[in-house]
Nucleic acid binder design. Structure first.
Lengths: 360, 360
DNA sequence: TTGTAAGCGTTATCAG
DNA sequence: CTGATAACGCTTACAA
């Protein structure tokens, strides 16, 4: 509780020392914080603007004054109010990241990539979830725009008309993480699910596999692209009628079930391409349980590069996807835009790599 | 670009239609967004306050007016400015979560728990990383306080003096996620690493294991507690001289190395308690590679309940830790505090559970 | 139930 | 390089 001097304080200062506690109980808690910039200015014997400059553009303030300001900041334990700054400057250093599912570890490297890029720039990250559906995304985007974030990263390809309208009218820079090539809002960073799936399918064929199965989750845009890539590869190989697509549930279990399906319903299949999160782990372990030699009886390939895959027996071939880099580059593009820089490429394809290992 | 009416506009409106683009190039991009509340008010033929009420406390506005306001909001594509709201009301609906390492999937359920709790309340989540060190935490906390978050969740036990001071002077509600019991800043949610480690060690002894090794990462407060629990159990069993503590590197590899260590340096060991992230996976796979029967040659227990553990051969015994619940409860406590509610328990022990499976 | 005026703490702008 | 002042867009407090 600090004393203020105002001619006519509408929000009067507290009179009694215990009044603070009472107030806190009555009304929602406040984010007051400690000293204000004007108090720092007073203590340092300068104007608020000099304090503001000393904090934001130190080089524009003479050494002596800057020292005095910074020491006043320390003495008062002043914490620069970025909320007021954003409000006043109409410019925010917070960005919003919308992910399909915060609970999916697959996105961890991406979040980390974003976070690592933002930190040294003094920017901050807000996280929201849009459970793989357009309306949730609309809510998340709306909430972020309400918070007046300086930029947005969306991990999705589809947006509701209302989302598009909001994005358009607010002119907030947006980066989409997603499949490439893509008709984009503005900037996109990602890799091609089509090309990646195709490349891995070709790899399996090249390793002598004749009957390849693709295991995916229920249809969604990403799954569709991977299926297209898979089919395109088979087509190119003249093996169109030898492919099979199966749908699995999420998790390790899904992969195990896929192997069970092969055993029971489609014994001709000699390669399983697991294009859904951790299913390759389940598939490999299930083969071990059934004492199926991998890759002789069933070759296994994974879409996602999980650390465990390197430690299974046999080690599992997978795609290395640029998940961390996607986070980094998205953040970089966004920050560049937010600082008004020219952004050269509008679509950045970060590619992928096949890590050939024991399972194929 | 919208027109404004001011008697003396310091920040003058744009005159030419292409001026916006020019401005955007010169100066950092702005978060302007579309219409303002006063424009909504004008269109609806009411005062700003009525718009504000219609948005924040709809029940306090007569039906007809509310309809008119909401329809004006739609027509203008107005997005409520929470930045200005927070600034004006000195109250924020954003909370900050500081994690030791955003890149560690272990924290995913916790983030998800926080996020799931906040979403229906219309609150938002900012994420920061404090690479297991006190100075980084200080920076993260400082940044969050600068953003005037309404509350803070810290995943750590130790704080720098400057952090403590900031927290104290700003009076922001804080929840710590961490070890229990703990001398806390304010509120703590977690489980006891000591008790969990002790319980699992007792379990291993009960399963007939005589020489138990504990594999941990390099010393940190959590590791220390787990080691204490391990030693306490051995002590209680009169097996104090039969225990062994080994340090491993992060990742699957660490667990594999632990098994190699047992094979080469300490063959008497018949149980390995992996108290560091995914090391139990590595240990189990390495035993398979060496054709060591588990649990006969080496029993394996894990501290963390990873999904894969249920699918390895044998399935791996582990602790179920309340990671998701910790996120939820932390958020719940924090929101309660932020709304000025009485918070009954200051320390919430969410306990743990031993999931007894094939590896022991 | 609705409206009026002051105020939140900073920065943009312009003058010195 | 520094300072005075208005403005940012909303909410609080109070009056009608």
């Amino acid at each position: 509780v600090r004393s203020r001097q105002k001619t006519k304080p509408l929000r009067r200062p507290l009179e009694r020392p215990d009044e603070a506690a009472e107030l806190a109980k009555q009304s929602p808690r406040r984010t007051l914080g400690g000293a204000r910039m004007s108090e720092v200015a007073e203590l340092a014997g300068v104007s608020r603007m000099t304090v503001s400059r000393a904090l934001n553009e130190p080089e524009k303030v003479k050494n002596e004054l800057r020292e005095r300001v910074l020491s006043a900041v320390r003495d008062l334990g002043y914490v620069h109010n970025h909320l007021a700054r954003s409000f006043s400057s109409q410019r925010s250093n917070v960005i919003g990241l919308v992910l399909p599912n915060i609970g999916n570890s697959i996105f961890v490297p991406t979040i980390k990539g974003v976070s690592d890029y933002l930190r040294p720039l003094g920017a901050h990250l807000m996280l929201a979830e849009a459970a793989h559906n357009i309306d949730d995304e609309e809510r998340a985007v709306g909430a972020f725009l309400a918070q007046r974030v300086g930029g947005l990263i969306l991990h999705s390809r589809e947006h509701s008309p209302a989302t598009l309208r909001m994005l358009e009218t607010t002119c907030v820079p947006v980066v989409e993480m997603g499949d490439l090539p893509d008709r984009s809002l503005d900037m996109v960073v990602g890799y091609s699910n089509f090309e990646a799936a195709k490349a891995m399918t070709l790899h399996l064929a090249q390793r002598g596999r004749r009957y390849i199965a693709l295991a995916t989750l229920n249809k969604n845009p990403v799954v569709t692209e991977r299926q297209r890539g898979f089919l395109a590869a088979l087509d190119e190989l003249g093996m169109a009628n030898k492919g099979r697509m199966i749908t699995v549930t999420r998790g390790v279990e899904g992969g195990a079930n896929a192997v069970a399906f092969v055993a029971e319903q489609a014994p001709e299949i000699d390669a399983l391409f697991c294009a859904s999160d951790v299913s390759a782990v389940g598939a490999t372990l299930e083969c071990a349980r059934r004492k199926w030699p991998v890759p002789e009886r069933l070759a296994i390939a994974s879409f996602n590069d999980l650390e465990v895959l390197r430690f299974l027996t046999p080690t599992v071939t997978c795609l290395r996807l640029p998940r961390y880099e996607i986070g980094q580059r998205s953040a970089a593009l966004l920050m560049a835009r937010m600082h008004g820089e020219e952004v050269p490429a509008k679509q950045i394809d970060l590619g992928f790599e096949i890590l050939h290992r024991g399972s194929t």
